[in-house]
Each structure stands twice: as C-alpha cells, then as structure tokens.
Nucleic acid binder design. Structure first.
Lengths: 355, 355
DNA sequence: TATTAGCACTCTATCGAGGTGAGTGCTAAA
DNA sequence: TTTAGCACTCACCTCGATAGAGTGCTAATA
C-alpha cells in the first residue's frame, strides 16, 4: 500500500493541497502550471491514472449522479487517509500561535465553562470549521457534596457536586414542609455518609437513614446513574458559521442533515462516545468521511482527541469539517489544545481522585 | 392609518398569507384564482397600487438591486405590522397542542435546564424557526449559598448559588493549603453572614472577617457584580436547521451574518436586553425587520416575551425567523410557553424572594 | 524504458437569441 | 365603481454554438 513512487506521492500531496484550497477538482494541466512541475501534463495524467487505480483518487460525480470524466480528480477517503498517515509532515503548532492560545487560557477566569467556551472558540477559529468540546467528567461518577436549599414550602433546590467538578441542580418537592435547619442537618449527614461513593456503593447504603434521608439518597443515586450513563459532559460548539460558507455546505441537503445532527446533543454524544472512547488520551484521531458509521457525515471529517487524566476524569475535543479540510493545520491545533486542557484539568480537579 | 376598506384588508391579509406560505411575490391574477375572489384581477391591481402607495406593499428588488415590476408584490415591514396589529385574529393555541406541550413539561425532570431545553425545542418545533430561551434569573442577584470544596493542595472548587437558582462554579487557588474542615467552617460562617445580601450589602461587610474569609468575600462580590451586569442567564437555542431551509437563508450572505450573531452569545444578550427589558411580563412583543436596530436582522422578525415574576426573577423567550414567518401560529405559542414557564418559576424559586 | 507530444473525445460553463408566462399600469368601456 | 383590454417589462426556460478543461490512447522521442 505504501508502494508509491516519490513522484506519485508528490502528485497526491499537491492534489490534496490544491483541492483543500480551491474545492475544485484538479486536473493535470492545472497542477503542472500552478506548481511549476518539471514534468509534463501527460506524465501527470499517467500517474493520476495509476493513483486512481489504487483507489486514492477518483473522478468527481456530478449532481445528476453521473461521473464527470472531464473535470479533474478528487482525493478519495483512502487518498486523504494516505495523505494524513504518510505524506503530512507532523509539524508542531508555531510557537507564536501556541503563545497566543495559552495566553488566552491563562487570562481567562478559572471556571470550567470558560475554558470550554474558549477551547471551542480557539479550535473553531484556527481550523475554520465546527469545533466540539465536551466538559471534563469522571469516568465513574463519585459523589462529593450535596447542598439542600429550602426555597418555599415543600420546594427544595438540591445541588449535587460530583467528582471532576460536575454540578447538578434539581428542584424537588417534598411530601411536607421542612425547615432549612433540618435540611442543612440532612445535607451534613449525607455528606459524611456518601462522600466519594460510586453508584454501586450507594445502593448498599439503606437502613442507616431516616425516611427523608432515604428519599434523597434515592434521588442522588438516580442522578448518579444518569450521570454514569451519559458518556460525556455538556457539549460546547462553535464555528457553525465557518462551515456554512464552505461550498459543499451551501444549499446541499447533506449540510442540513449534518447540522441537525449537531443540534441534537444526544445523538452527538452517542457519536462521540462511539469513537473517542476507543482512543486514549494524547493521540489525535482522524475520522475521514464518517468512516462508514454516519451517513450524515459522509462528506465530513473529524479530528478528535481526548484530554484529561486517563481513567479518571476526561473530556473530548475536536473539529468537524469538510473532508477537504486542512489536516496539516487542524491536527496540531487539536493536539495542542488537548494538551493545554489536560494540564488545566490535571492541575485542578484531577489529583484528588486518587485518594 | 387604519383607513383601509374591507376589501383592502382582505387583499393585504391574503397577500401576507400567500407570501408566508410560498415565499414568492404574489400577483393580482394568482390572488384571484387561488383564493377565488369575486372581483377581477384589475380591481385587485388597483387596490394593490393603493396599498403600495400607503407603504404596506412593495415590489420586490432583485439580487441586482433593481426593482422588478413584473414579479408581484410583497408586504413591507409596515404591511406585516398592520397585519399583526389589525388583521390577525388573536387565537388561543388549540387545546390539544396546549395539552401536548404542558404534558411534556410535567413529564420532564424538575431541573431548570431541562425546562429551558424543552421550551426551546417546543418553540422551534411549533414555529419552524430559531428559538431563543434565557434561563430565569433574579433582576438583582442575591447571594444564597457558598460551598467550598478542597480538591488538591491550594486548589479549591467554589460553588455559588444565587437566588433564582443560578449556580456559579469557579476554581480558585489559595496562597497556602487549607484543610476541608477549615473550608467548611468558612463556608458555614459566610452562609450566615451574607445570606440574602445584594452586591451593595456585600461591600459594606469588611472588617468582620479574617483574611481568608475576606478574600473569598471579594471573589463572591466580583462574581455577583458580573452576574448583575449580565442581563440574562444562559441562552438556549434550538431550531437553527429549520431556518436554514428557508429560501431567504440559503446562500445569502445575510443569513450567515445573522447566524454569526446567534453564535456570539454576548451580542445576543445585548440584543435581547435592549428589547425585552422594555416590555413587561405577559405581553408578547413582535419586532419586524430588526426594527431599525440590527442591520444583520433586516430580513428577520422576532416574537419575544418575558416570563417569570416581574421585578424578581425573570427570563425571556422568543422566536427568530424570516419576516414572513407565520405570526398567527408563532405568537400564541410564544405566549403559551411563556405562561407555562412563568407558572413553573412561580411555583419553585419565585416566592422566597419576597422575604 | 520512461517520458512527452499530439489527437480525438467528453463534459461543463457561458453566451445570445427567442419564446413563454406572469405581472403591471393605464385607458376606456360597462 | 368595476372591469376588459392592451402595451410593456422582466424573469425564466430552452436551444444551439462556442470555448475551455480534462481524459485516455498512441506514437514519437530522449
């Protein structure tokens, strides 16, 4: 599979680059003229035919479904993959860009959702595509703190804090009014009892509590189960408008379906869980053309990475864009921001999980 | 201004309806045939000329900026406004729809963000446009509870609860490590001291605390000031894809600018604050064509309403769509959902603010 | 043997011409 | 007051012709 001549590699690389820039199928003549190659269009044509036979290039299909033999060539999914794995020289993000980004993070307020918003914004801006960032969360929810706040009559605001800094608030209606003192007492006892417990621990914890406490434990346990089921924290998106100006997204029906996918957070979570959970922290994963799994994303690619403390508290971030996105720019950015977020998470909410 | 003949009103109404349905300029002949009017196209033409003179109709301008005298008429902003104020019979939402919607709310989990998400989803679905919902928040932030959770070394997770149920979490780094017991003690004392206080109250509260407590009070006060400055809570959006399939949004540059506006939450908050704050709770406000204020929304209309307890805790919700949206369907929906959210807010976090 | 020039072919995009259809305004008749 | 008729304007579609870009294949060339 790697048995391409150097010239073939050069040609494939230039085709990917040119198509990334122009979104137009690229032909032999244009390639020679535009990049001043020292062999003739005919040679290039022969090589392109060979690359087509290898499945790395193809002739584009028009809107009417018929292939267009006189338009030029376009990389196939395999072509992009070959480019990413063999042809793209892995460069670091330029130092100046690194500094700009990290500066923004250290200037931001030390709140998780600020970081998430900022990460999404940076990714979207750098890649000129849609960015996705999920809030960090513990792989297995551990209870940390409960707060019960009386509001009015039988209504109580319950605030749960899980490990990893995830916060869950809920309004509950009790059978009968309860004073704030009583609530505070219950909260204090519960904080003693269920500190650091996982879902399983919690179920084993009946008998040692009165009715009110028991009810609340049940609620907490329900919330934790839900938190366990969820595969990722809240999802932050940015850069939707970037992708709308791309030619393959204007007026196409695929575009709308892809965007609908982004709007439905549950589907999106499912999507992310299916892919990202397989990979470890640190590596950047590149999914080209939906990789067979998502019909809606047939025209898209994703560059994804996990961040955080493996096995403990992790999140995911990435970029979704047209298949012809600039991988050479996107991949280092995703890697760098993932590293940055890993550091931030590590410094703050990570270590106390080892206790 | 109200001096339209009945026939003129009928014609204006039909033009608005037809244009809402088809997005095509509507001509005299089509109008007569399609709605089987008992007068001739020529009569309709005369009336349309009169309505044009009154500024309620106009001839559409093509993409090249030249007016097209042979395409038909479209309503002007004034035309829509006349339609909304004088011609639209204010109907209630059908009972079955009301039941469907309220059922969804009472089945949902009693969490504010569930309600917001659901409200946005319902509005987007009913109106087939973009929906905006802001979380309820107190007009003047009152401090309610603080929670300090030691994570690791000098890192502390601070969770603030404001009146109205708003929750704010922040990671702070202390000068030196502090035990969880010490933190709990500080939190307990602070909860005593600053319970129910507003921003002004807080600043008067120095001297009676040690250094650590004083630092934290400063932080809280900063957070509250920021909360005061913000005009609305978190913004929930839905239905972006609805509007993308509308003809005036495909491939137009205006569309992208409008969507960019929606992506930038700060601008959006500013926009909402400028309009909604003027109106009271209960009334539905209709802004047609950006109403001169926002160039990006020249082609759009908004149907907005406030919900909550006036003067105490309120939020806003509304629909943003093309100017030719179905006001007759959108306005009752917005009114109904606003009422529903008002009830929910009232039942839970509203009353204890009167203390 | 590898490369290139040349040629025939295909398909798209563009342009102008011509016809059709929808709409308008105006005038005159009912 | 209403309507029929007419002249006029555009937008849109179709058709044919043309130019341009690209391909594959064959034969000549270094």
């Amino acid at each position: 599979m790697t048995d391409l001549t150097d010239r073939q590699k050069t040609i494939l690389m230039l085709i990917v680059r040119d198509y990334t820039d122009t979104a137009q199928p690229v032909g032999s003549k244009r390639l020679v003229e535009h990049y001043s190659l020292d062999y003739s269009p005919a040679t290039v044509r022969n090589e392109m035919a060979a690359l087509t036979d290898l499945g790395l290039l193809r002739q584009p299909i028009g809107v009417d479904g018929v292939i267009n033999p006189s338009a030029g060539r376009v990389p196939t999914e395999e072509g992009y993959r070959y480019f990413v794995t063999h042809l793209m020289h892995q460069v670091e993000l330029p130092e100046t860009v690194q500094h700009t980004i990290s500066h923004q993070f250290f200037q931001s307020r030390p709140e998780v959702n600020q970081w998430m918003t900022l990460a999404a914004s940076v990714l979207a801006h750098q890649s000129q595509a849609v960015s996705l960032v999920t809030a960090p969360r513990a792989e297995k929810a551990r209870f940390k703190h409960v707060e019960l706040i009386s509001t009015q009559g039988r209504q109580v605001l319950m605030v749960l804090v899980f490990s990893g800094g995830e916060v869950n608030q809920q309004i509950l209606t009790l059978a009968e009014p309860v004073t704030q003192e009583r609530l505070s007492g219950v909260a204090a006892r519960l904080n003693q009892m269920v500190q650091g417990k996982t879902t399983e621990d919690l179920t084993a914890l009946s008998g040692r509590a009165d009715a009110l406490e028991q009810d609340i434990i049940t609620l907490i346990s329900g919330d934790m189960r839900r938190a366990d089921d969820r595969v990722s924290g809240e999802i932050y998106l940015d850069g939707l408008t970037n992708v709308l100006s791309e030619p393959e997204f204007t007026d196409s029906d695929d575009a709308r379906r892809a965007l609908r996918l982004l709007e439905e957070r549950t589907t999106l979570q499912d999507l992310l869980s299916r892919t990202v959970l397989k990979s470890g922290v640190g590596g950047v994963q590149v999914l080209i053309g939906g990789e067979g799994a998502w019909e809606e994303l047939r025209q898209c690619s994703m560059v994804l990475a996990r961040y955080g403390v493996p096995g403990m508290v992790t999140g995911m971030l990435g970029v979704l864009g047209p298949m012809r996105m600039s991988y050479a720019r996107t991949i280092p950015t995703v890697r760098y921001v993932a590293g940055l977020l890993s550091d931030l998470v590590n410094d703050t909410v990570g270590d106390n999980l080892n206790e």
